[in-house]
Design a protein around this nucleic acid. Sequence first.
DNA 1: CGTCGGTTTGATCTAGTTCAACCGCCGTGG
DNA 2: CCACGGCGGTTGAACTAGATCAAACCGACG
Lengths: 230, 230
Amino acid sequence: MPGFRAFEPAELRFVSSFKIGELVAETGATLLSEGKHSSHLYTLLSGWAFRYKLLPDGRRQILNYMLPGDLVGLQGSITGEMEHSVEALSTLVLCVFQRDRLHELFRKHPGLGFDLTWLAAREERMLDDHLLSLGRRTALERAAYLLAFLHQRAAAVGLVADRTLLIPITQQHVADTLGLSIVHTNKTLRKLADRGLINWLDRACEVINVEALMALAGWEGLPSGRRPLI
Amino acid sequence: MPGFRAFEPAELRFVSSFKIGELVAETGATLLSEGKHSSHLYTLLSGWAFRYKLLPDGRRQILNYMLPGDLVGLQGSITGEMEHSVEALSTLVLCVFQRDRLHELFRKHPGLGFDLTWLAAREERMLDDHLLSLGRRTALERAAYLLAFLHQRAAAVGLVADRTLLIPITQQHVADTLGLSIVHTNKTLRKLADRGLINWLDRACEVINVEALMALAGWEGLPSGRRPLI
DNA sequence: CGTCGGTTTGATCTAGTTCAACCGCCGTGG
DNA sequence: CCACGGCGGTTGAACTAGATCAAACCGACG
C-alpha cells in the first residue's frame, strides 16, 4: 500500500499478535460512545466514519472523519475513557486491538510508540485546521474547506478515481461539521454546485474541482508524505 | 509539585540530559512561527502563552492556551514543521529540549514515550471541546466555557488563590478564540460581568464564579487526575 | 400507497458584524 | 511640562449572514 511507511519484520509480528480480531460495522452503527469506557482500539481497514460530541440539549458537533488506515479510539484518550462518540458512515471493516497492551507496545517497539505519537500529532493538525475554519471562515469558505479536506484525505488512501470522489455523507453531517443550520448548509452547497465545484447527490457528494475549493477556502492542504500505519 | 506523576530516577536523569537550557521570553514574543521549522521543543515552566493560525487575509484563530507544565512545539507536529504560531501572554520561563533526540527518548524510556502520547491525547481532548464550542455554542455560552476552561486549567497547576484568578488576556484574544468580533465580545463579556460571574480588568480577567460559568456553558470540565510532565 | 429520510425553497427574524465615535491610560517626544 | 498617539475598552446605530419557521418535493421502501 503506497503512502504508508513499511513495517520492520519484528514490528509486523508484534502488530499481528496485538490484533485480536476483525469487526464489521453497518452504516449508522455507533462504535464508541461518549462517557463510556472502551477496552478496544481499532484500525479502520475500509469505509468512512466520523466522531462527534453532543451538548446536554442535543446540539451535535462533528469533530473529524475517519478513513482507511486511521486509528479509532485513541483520539482524546489513551486510557479508553471516551469523551466523544464514533459512528459509521458506511459499512466498515475494522481491525481490533486490546488497549491494555499499549504499554507493551511502547516498551517492546519504540518505533511503533513513536508512530502513535505521530498519528496523534496528525489528528491535532486536522483539528487545528477545523478550528480555524469554524472560528474564522464564512459558510461558503467552510463548506469549500471541508470538501477539499475530505477529498484530499480520500485521495491519500487511493479512494479517488479519475479526479472525482463520492463522499457518503448527508447535508445534516455537513451542517453538524460546519456549525451551520441544515437550511443554510443546503443553500451554501447549492452555491458550490452552481459554480461547478461539486455535485450533490443523494446521501453523497461528488467533488469536481478540488483546486478551486482550496483556493476559495484559502487552504494550503495537508502536509503530504509517508505516514505510519498500526 | 502535586498534580503531576512522579519520575523514575532513570527517567529524571534522561530528562535532565535531554534539557539543553532555559529560555526567558517577554510578553508578546513569538516563540514559534507558522511555516517555519523548529529544532527545539519546550516545557513551559511559568507564564501563559497561546498558539494560533492565520488565514491568508489575516483573520486570526487562537487554537489553545499554554500554562506551566505544558509542552510547547509538539502540537500538530512531531518533526518540527510548524503549522501554527506561539506567542507569549506574559513573561515566560521555558525549559529547552533538542527535538532530534526524541527518537532516543522513545527507545530508552518507553514510559516517557507513553507520556508524550498521553499529552497529545490531552491536547486533542481540549481541541475537541473548543470545536464543540465554536460549532454549537452561542456567544454567551462560548465566553462562559472559555473562562471556565482557563480557570480550571490554571487551578490544576495551582495558579488560583482564594477562588479567583487573573487571566492575562485582552478582549481581542477572547474574540480570536471564540470566533467573534471584538465588539460583540465586549458586549458578551459585559453580560457575564453584569451577572457577577467575572470581573473584567485592564488586560486581564478575574473569574468569580466558575460553577455558574460551567452550568451556563453546559460544560462538565476536564477529566481530573495526575498527569505526566516532561 | 402511505410514510419516512433527505433535500429544496421562500419568508421572516435575530445574533452577531461592521461602522463610527469616544474614553481613559500610559509612554514618548518636543 | 504638556501634547500626542496608540492601545484597550465601551457604546450606539445600521446592516447582514445565517437561523428559524413553514411547506413542499422526491425517491425508497415496507
